[in-house]
Simulated scan of single mutants.
Amino acid sequence: MIKLIAIDIDGTLVDYNQSEISRPVKFAIRKARDLGIEIVLISGRNYYSMKKFVSELNLHGAALTINGGVVVNTDQEKIMRESIIPSDVVEKMLKILDQDQTPRIVFSGLALYVEPKYAQHETVRYLMKEKDNVLLVEDMFIHAKNNNVNKIMAMTQNEKIAEIIDKIKPISKGILNMERGLDNHVDIYPSSTSKGASLAYVAKQKGIDKHEVMAIGDAETDISMLLEAGVGVAMGNSLSSVCKHADFITKPVWEDGVAHAIETFILKDR
């Protein structure tokens, strides 16, 4: 019996081209929640960027943000668990990015932090649409010394991304992962960060066994949580590299794949 459902947001809960949860998906999630099943959203977004979905679905408990790097108690909006980049490594990375004045966003706790000189970057302006999501700091070096940093996103042309990665590799010391997410962006985060590890943590906190967990996702960052769940569900719009790790492939996001998965494994017998 499924007791916890972990659901990725972009490409799974909602389509990349729109930010509204469809009525069938919302209905299925609420029916599952009414049956006493724990619903946990898990995303590459930071908390304030995913808060609207938590509120819309009236979820209480944990939200797994920054690809599992930060686990947040949604009722108290407090951090329960987080993966942190060492402050000395953050300082070295910021200096490398400063060499070419590369715009960057620092993911720190619940929010994002940006220096005023990068506030007009198109990615920053897009992220500012969410309330309280982006905060301005005059000196990122001072902020990094006084606050935990969970991820840094650098934004520049694709041909320069490779140069940045090569410069940072010598200081990563095996404690950092670097991957290209969006075009012209690179995400830099602790190697301990994974959706699977944070999902296992939340399930253990709630006394839920692995076989009682269902995880639904579409991207390669979701693979770890599909493997950590008793039932790993890949969206119909997933890459083949994701599908091969799934126990079940549901419909694509534009055909309400989350609702189909919940109906197939939970609602059809109740």
Score class of each variant (00 low, 15 high):
151 K>V: 10
221 T>G: 04
228 E>H: 03
112 L>Y: 08
147 N>I: 05
97 L>T: 02
52 K>I: 09
157 Q>F: 12
47 Y>P: 07
221 T>P: 06
35 L>F: 06
106 V>E: 00
125 R>C: 08
118 Y>R: 07
195 K>T: 03
88 D>L: 07
222 D>K: 07
166 D>A: 14
84 I>L: 06
95 K>Y: 10
117 K>Y: 09
88 D>R: 12
270 R>C: 14
165 I>S: 07
253 V>G: 07
108 S>I: 07
151 K>N: 13
264 T>W: 05
212 E>K: 11
98 D>H: 07
28 A>D: 02
164 I>H: 02
221 T>S: 12
57 L>D: 07
253 V>S: 03
173 K>R: 12
154 A>L: 09
139 D>L: 11
43 S>T: 15
153 M>W: 04
12 T>D: 06
136 L>R: 08
157 Q>H: 15
169 K>D: 02
146 N>V: 00
20 E>P: 02
122 E>W: 06
160 K>I: 08
153 M>I: 15
168 I>R: 00
174 G>M: 05
180 R>C: 09
187 D>N: 13
206 K>M: 15
95 K>E: 13
234 A>I: 10
18 Q>K: 12
43 S>Q: 00
232 G>C: 07
85 I>S: 06
118 Y>F: 15
225 M>T: 09
97 L>E: 00
20 E>K: 15
170 P>T: 04
196 G>S: 00
9 I>L: 03
127 L>R: 10
217 G>Y: 01
116 P>G: 11
239 L>W: 10
162 A>V: 10
35 L>M: 14
51 K>W: 05
169 K>L: 13
